[in-house]
Amino acid sequence: MTQTMVESRPGTATAQAPAGEGQARSREAVLRVFRGDASGGSEVEYRVPVAPGMVVLDAIHWIQAHRAPDLAVRWNCKAAKCGSCSAEVNGKPSLMCKTRLDHFAQDRTISVRPMKTFPIIKDLVTDVSWNYEVNKRIPPFKPRPGADWRWQQSDVDRVQEFRKCIECFLCQDVCHVLRTHELKHQFAGPRFFVRIAGLEMHPMDGEDRSGFLKDHAGIGLCNITKCCTEVCPESITITDNAIIPLKERVVDWFYDPLRMVWRKLTGR
């Protein structure tokens, strides 16, 4: 069984076993994977042969191929670029494709559960459609009229950080406003503050999203505990670089006394 995991490159026959591989080959990992659907479920234990460098998603695939062909999991790129394989590994929101088995103590059972913030569909797959609904409501990119489409790299370094987001929704999963207080109807969540920051700080954008941020996205509900930043697999500094500057924009626009007078006078 281990053979499938450590098989050498077909065709390139000279692959040699590096030192230490033999030892790793005999190892087994014990995974407790949530199995169930909306009606309930429980963790099921699987023993999986471990190959060097193996990640949790490899183990899940092994279980599918050898033990439970109907084990539901989302995945695509297996390279931390698509953000599909989000789950909670030992309680931590993680991408399964970049969570290495050898980062856990050998004798420790690894628990793999679906994201808690979203309704379960089956096993490790949750219904994340709410995120797509939020996204639809965000005022889109609107180029400033007559803009000169030239800018320096330094003008976009900041905004390119936000555009690294792979929409894994781990930040949404960990955010206590959504996870504990279940305020999905009032709060857009960190992912969409990152998206809005990317639009607001785009050098050519002419839209104003302050009203949307305050009244529809509920940015005031975030009390900057930075949990989202901690779980971001793209290392986007969500709280400091996206949410706080957006909060400042909203405060400036709606609560600055001079602005309030200006808005009264101009009717904006």
Binding site: D37, Q64, P69, D70, L71, A72, V73, K122, D123, V125
Partner: peptide
């Protein structure tokens, strides 16, 4: 042959 139900069943999809 596939096992399980039609609910999100990767074996069936494959």
């Amino acid at each position: 042959r596939v096992e399980g139900t039609r609910l999100y069943n990767p074996g069936w999809h494959l």
